[in-house]
Structures are given as structure tokens and as C-alpha cells.
């Protein structure tokens, strides 16, 4: 009895060690202790908008992946999907906090009270037309094959951008990218390994994988299209022009699809970057409804 009470005591109190907190769950402000000075010659409003583009992609994809929790093919996949979603959520929090730190909050503060941190004001109190994500990350999941194809494509694109972004003149973006590339390399690897199994598994899995590829490929149309803002920030040494990643992404995806015995669809014709300008299909408003509903019911609450 005495022994157990000691054990319980130990379990109950001895875990002040923050090592038990998953990344992104800490009590600190996400950018605490980071130098958030905006580099010379860079418009803070443009830097903030760019952070929203990268942050919204991560937040929206994390939300989509979270829809798989308790519905995954295996327990190992529950853990893996949650891992990927947690990584992306962590990236989103840092990027949204960075946008807030340079004063880019859109209309979010019209609804969010002062006690709500910037990252939450931006995530919960912007409407769809203020979200800057691409259609690639917002599309509904489809089945497991389509989910995996989308994750492969999104992780490949984001990894190519983040690898270049490590050289950004903005120290915060450079630091977020340096951490993110390790995460994204894992996401891409996880998706690629699954796609090999699905493509070269059974007749049914091959068909589903090919259907997934065919459904996701058109979403590549605007992924490499830069906005004027991205071009200006790229010239200033802060951002990455997505068109500079096109060949690398094509070559990676081509190789994975070949090894997975899947047919490579036509590359879609380039389309203007609508998502980056806040033009979305109805699926974004729907996704945001699920994300934001509770927080908006209690705008004065702290959680």
C-alpha cells in the first residue's frame, strides 16, 4: 500500500518535466524568445500576408488529416496521421503568430476579444475570403488512397519550398523552415511508402490509388503560380517563388508514381493563384465552420 502511494505520488506530481508535452502544446507563446525584428527593406504587412499563406496551408491540411482520427485503417496509422497533423498544426501556430507579430490580423480583431492570442484570432475569427490556402490542401479527403496522394503532393511541394526558405532573410521564417523540413521529409516519406503499397498491392488498391492520383492532379494547377506579393518578397530574399520548385516536385512525384506502378496524368495547365487571394470553393467555408464554430460562440472566453 505504502509502496503504491509512493508510485502514485510520483506519477501525480513528478512530471513537471516539460518533456512530456507534445510539440506545440506548451504554455508559452509560440514565438517567445525569438527575435521578431522585420528585416530591412521588407514591408511588414507583406511579410505577414506571406506567413498567412504558408500558415493557412498547414492549418487547413492539419484539419483535413484530423478527420481521419478514429477512422484510420490501423492503429499505427492513427498514430502516424496524428503525428503529421500535429507537426502541421505546430507550423501553422508559428506562422500565424509571426503574421500577428508584424500586425497582420485582417478583420479578425473585429470579432476576437483582446485576451485571445493572435494565432487564435487569425485561425478562428477570419472568414474564408481572408484565408490564403491553396485548393490542394482544402479538398475533401476522399478515401484513404486519395488522402495519401494528396499528402504526398502537398508534403512534396511544401518540403521544396521550406528547403529554400531556410535561407530566408527573415530569421523567424528561416527558423520555422529549418525545423519544418525534417517534419515534411517524414510526411513525404510516409505518404510515398503507402503509395507504393497501394499502387502495387491488389487490383482494388491499384484502382483506388490511380483514382486518387487522377482526382488530386488537377489541384496542382495553381500550386506553382506566384502572387505579385510572393515575387516581391522573393526578390527581397524573404520568400520562395513557388514556380522555382516546379521541376523538383515533378521529378519526385514522377519517380514515386512510376515505382508505384501508377500512370502519371497530364500536368494541368497553369492557373492563377486564386486560393492565395482568398477565392475558394465552398469546401473551405465548410471546413472553417467545423474549425471555428465553438470559438465563435464564445468570443469572450479563454481556453
Amino acid at each position: 500500500m505504502a509502496h503504491e502511494e509512493t508510485v502514485y505520488e510520483a506519477l501525480d506530481h513528478a512530471h513537471g518535466g516539460e518533456g512530456h508535452w507534445a510539440f506545440g502544446t506548451g504554455f508559452d507563446e509560440p514565438l517567445a524568445g525569438v527575435d521578431t525584428t522585420v528585416p530591412d527593406g521588407v514591408d511588414p504587412a507583406e511579410l505577414g500576408e506571406y506567413c498567412l499563406m504558408l500558415g493557412d496551408d498547414a492549418l487547413v491540411l492539419a484539419q483535413r488529416l484530423t478527420e481521419w482520427i478514429t477512422a484510420s485503417p490501423e492503429l499505427e496509422e492513427e498514430v502516424a496521421v496524428a503525428n503529421v497533423a500535429l507537426d502541421l498544426l505546430g507550423q501553422a501556430r508559428l506562422l500565424l503568430a509571426r503574421a500577428g507579430s508584424v500586425g497582420v490580423l485582417g478583420r479578425s480583431r473585429e470579432l476576437a476579444t483582446g485576451s485571445i492570442p493572435d494565432e487564435d484570432a487569425l485561425a478562428y475569427f477570419r472568414d474564408a475570403d481572408e484565408f490564403r490556402n491553396t485548393a490542394l490542401v482544402a479538398a475533401p479527403n476522399g478515401d484513404f488512397a486519395q488522402t495519401i496522394v494528396r499528402l504526398l503532393v502537398a508534403a512534396t511541394v511544401r518540403l521544396a519550398v521550406f528547403a529554400r526558405l531556410r535561407e530566408s532573410r527573415d530569421p523567424v521564417l528561416a527558423a520555422i523552415a529549418a525545423k519544418g523540413v525534417h517534419e515534411l521529409a517524414y510526411h513525404r516519406d510516409h505518404a510515398a511508402r503507402w503509395l507504393l503499397r497501394l499502387g502495387d498491392g491488389t487490383a482494388e488498391s491499384h484502382r483506388r490509388a490511380q483514382d486518387g492520383v487522377d482526382a488530386v492532379w488537377p489541384l496542382l494547377a495553381d500550386v506553382f503560380s506566384a502572387t505579385d506579393l510572393e515575387r516581391r518578397l522573393t526578390a527581397a530574399g524573404v520568400a520562395v517563388d513557388p514556380s522555382s520548385t516546379r521541376e523538383e516536385v515533378r521529378s519526385v512525384l514522377t519517380e514515386v508514381l512510376e515505382r508505384a506502378t501508377l500512370r502519371l496524368p497530364e500536368w494541368p495547365a497553369e492557373a492563377p493563384p486564386r486560393g492565395r487571394l482568398g477565392e475558394h470553393g465552398p469546401e473551405v467555408a465548410e471546413l472553417l465552420g467545423a474549425l471555428q464554430g465553438l470559438a465563435r460562440q464564445h468570443p469572450a472566453a479563454t481556453w
Binding site: T25, E78, V79, A82, A290
Partner: peptide
């Protein structure tokens, strides 16, 4: 409540917790 968690920090905490439960099951 994962999709609707009312702050990003709470969402991360809950996601990590549900993930732990899958781990316990395994």
C-alpha cells in the same frame, strides 16, 4: 471535439492525447 477545439493550443493538446490513447491500445 478534435475538429472544433476552441484554440490551436487546445487542439494540439487533444490531438496528442488521443494519439497517446491509440499508442496505449497498441
Amino acid at each position: 471535439w478534435l475538429l472544433a477545439a476552441p484554440s490551436l493550443r487546445r487542439k494540439a493538446i487533444l490531438l496528442a492525447k488521443v494519439q497517446d490513447e491509440a499508442g496505449h491500445g497498441m
